[in-house]
Design a protein around this nucleic acid. Structure first.
Length: 640
DNA sequence: CTGGGGACGGGGCCC
DNA sequence: CGGGCCCCGTCCCCA
């Protein structure tokens, strides 16, 4: 091209601008050209012509020696290329119109809610501004349900004011927040993966932006990786390839076991995240980089109860500043030593191997979810045998979904879509089978009659619960107050409410009282019981179980509730009692709980139903699993 | 606080 | 492999 002989110093170089041409998209820094086709007399050509690929020519006109001359852009004769003509105001106008639509609810196809407040918005906008929503919606074929499904996404984890500010930012490119709300906005931006806002907030707050265990250089390298790697390499491969990150990954994974969005304290996989977690977890790490896709693949954590996105009253538990959807990965007991051999992205055999065979690997590995426990149980011969199905990994929460065809069903828990609507009352459901059951309300069908009375039920499990009333069976007993319940969830609720302890304190004690020195009359009961008192104490905020491990720290060198002169025995019994409390009560002393389990194990083995999944032993095993998770978490932290 | 009903999400089995 | 159906565990709500 002849024009290219001319020097370029006279050209204004500004920000890169994408130029779409017939031959692809090019990037150019040439933004102010005198347009050959424009009648503007000066360099203030509105239709600034940029670039030359695809049919434009750069023409230098004038006398270079005399400092004159000007670059001109001309269409190449015979070229079918396109000239990119930017309209700088377009984006603002577009955004403005979208904002108007948002305010009037026009074309809104997504409603965000936060603690009762509702925010109509547009999926496309949210997906454009938020890494989270991009990932959430990006997995939907054709936008999900044809793109027309109205969705509600509950984000109670983001404060309403913060969510409002973030939405305002999304539609106006301006973040307007009071300084007092900065942290909420920062947290929300991190949860939703709005990097620039998070950066700005963090800068204002003066917080450091460092990723866990990563140096800035490492991040730079990772984020600057050629994009083709993203295409050519599967998620699984990436996960496995980054062996050096496993420790960090493990740590984050365990930290995020308590679902980021779902810290439900009673959940067997989320109990370890008390409310304090959300307080201490204010962002201390590097949020997503601008190269989000790269970060997707980089992120390797798992967890997340997808329900949390939709269900109210399950506030956020930001942990480490990284949303679970960004970091979580399947609860894999132990990463495989070598990368899976195939290139499948999701639902591949590699993942299956993770979920089943490899789940049993590693002495410290603990299957945590009910499903995983079930898988492990079946693998060792107990429970139902799992049919060999290809698990699929949720691209949002990284959870492994077992069962063919179950992933779309699971995905609706993220999108909030409820495509199955009751024709009678209009209530919508995420699943067809739930709608079918719902329809029984309208038809009056109650297909589960009680054989002992006239009661009929909509659900088989309702009948099951009901039958327990007839039988009087109360197989779920509180280990503290020995109150029995017919349903396991009632026992769990009972335990959470600590009501058993209040009953204990009110209940007049029969026989000898605890002696002044803390010793109880050992002849009164089969099992000496300083333990109950300890247990009760463990429920209080002043309980310090480390005293037990330290051999007691009371004035006399032993815990006042222990047997003087028999500290070791006291410790043993106390630990056993503590084990009864479950990991929830023991907070940061999981090792105590495990030790207690150990001590109790042999003593009660013959009493309990070893095979019963709902037996106290089974419950204790579950708690043990939970505690081992916590311990594993701490160990990882210590290693670092 | 407890009992009971219902909703919801996940897994297994089958077609 | 997708979907239907069923069962289960968990949670919420209400009386």
């Amino acid at each position: 091209m002849d024009a290219m002989r001319h020097p370029l110093p006279r050209l204004q170089l500004t920000v890169p601008v994408p130029i779409k041409t017939g031959k692809g998209v090019f990037w150019s820094r040439l933004v102010r050209w005198m347009c050959h086709h424009c009648t503007e007399p000066s360099g203030h050509c509105v239709n600034t012509v940029i670039g030359w690929p695809g049919g434009c020519q750069l023409l230098w006109e004038g006398d270079e020696e005399q400092g004159g001359g000007i670059w001109r852009v001309a269409m190449s004769p015979g070229e079918d290329g396109l000239i990119g003509i930017p309209f700088p105001e377009h984006s603002n106008e577009l955004l403005s119109h979208l904002n108007d639509q948002r305010r009037t609810g026009l074309l809104c196809d997504l409603t965000l809610t936060s603690r009762g407040a509702r925010y109509p918005t547009h999926r496309s906008v949210m997906a454009a501004v938020s890494l989270y929503f991009r990932r959430l919606f990006g997995t939907e074929e054709g936008g999900g349900e044809g793109g027309g499904g109205f969705s509600v996404c509950q984000l109670d984890c983001v404060a309403p004011d913060a969510l409002d500010a973030l939405l305002e930012f999304a539609y106006t490119a301006t973040l307007t927040i009071p300084s007092s709300g900065m942290r909420d906005v920062l947290r929300g931006a991190q949860l939703l993966g709005i990097q620039c806002v998070a950066d700005a907030c963090r800068e204002i707050l003066g917080e450091k932006a460092e990723a866990e265990g990563e140096t800035a250089e490492e991040q730079r390298i990772q984020y600057a990786a050629p994009k083709r790697m993203l295409v050519g390499e599967s998620y699984v491969q990436k996960v496995s390839r980054r062996k050096t990150d496993r420790k960090r990954v493990k740590k984050v994974e365990l930290n995020h076991r308590s679902s980021f969005f779902n810290p439900s304290p009673a959940s067997p996989i989320s109990h370890s995240s008390p409310a304090s977690d959300s307080l201490r977890s204010l962002p201390s790490t590097q949020p997503p980089s601008p190269e989000q896709e790269e970060l997707f693949i980089k992120s390797e954590q798992q967890n997340g109860d997808p329900r949390s996105m939709r269900e109210p009253g399950r506030g956020a538990t930001p942990n480490g500043g990284h949303p679970h959807w960004l970091h979580d990965r399947p609860r894999i007991a132990q990463p495989p030593p070598v990368p899976p051999p195939n290139d499948k992205l999701l639902g591949n055999d590699g993942v299956e191997g993770f979920g089943e065979d490899r789940m049993l690997m590693g002495s410290t590995s603990v299957p945590t979810s009910v499903a995983e426990r079930g898988a492990a149980a079946s693998a060792v011969g107990g429970g139902r045998k799992r049919k060999s199905q290809t698990p699929q990994q949720c691209p949002v929460c990284q959870k492994i979904i077992h069962g063919a065809g179950k992933l779309p069903r699971h995905m609706r828990t993220h999108t909030g879509e409820k495509p199955f609507q009751c024709s009678a009352c209009g209530v919508r459901f995420t699943r067809n089978d739930k709608l079918k059951i719902h329809m029984r309300k309208h038809t009056g069908e109650r297909p589960y009659p009680c054989p002992h009375c006239t009661a009929r039920f909509l659900h088989s499990y309702d009948l099951k619960n009901h039958l327990s009333l007839h039988s009087g069976a109360r197989p779920f007993e509180c280990p503290l107050c020995h109150k029995a319940f017919a349903r396991e969830d009632h026992l769990q609720r009972h335990r959470k409410g600590h009501s058993c302890l209040e009953m204990r304190t009110r209940r007049p004690r029969r026989g000898p009282e605890v002696m002044e020195d803390g010793r109880e009359d050992e002849g009164r009961r089969e099992q000496p019981n300083p333990l109950e008192a300890l247990s009760s104490q463990a429920h209080t905020s002043v309980f310090h179980p480390h005293m037990l491990l330290d051999g007691g720290s009371g004035p006399s060198g032993a815990h006042p509730l222990m047997f003087p002169g028999d500290v070791e025995r006291g410790r043993s019994l106390a630990l056993q009692a503590l084990a009864q409390l479950g990991p929830h009560r023991l907070g940061g002393y999981p090792e105590l709980f495990l030790r207690g389990l150990e001590l109790r194990g042999s003593r009660e083995a013959e009493v309990e139903d070893p095979g019963g999944t709902h037996s106290p032993a089974a419950l204790r095993d579950r708690w043990a699993d939970e505690v081992e998770e916590e311990i594993g978490d701490e160990e990882v932290e210590e290693e670092e």
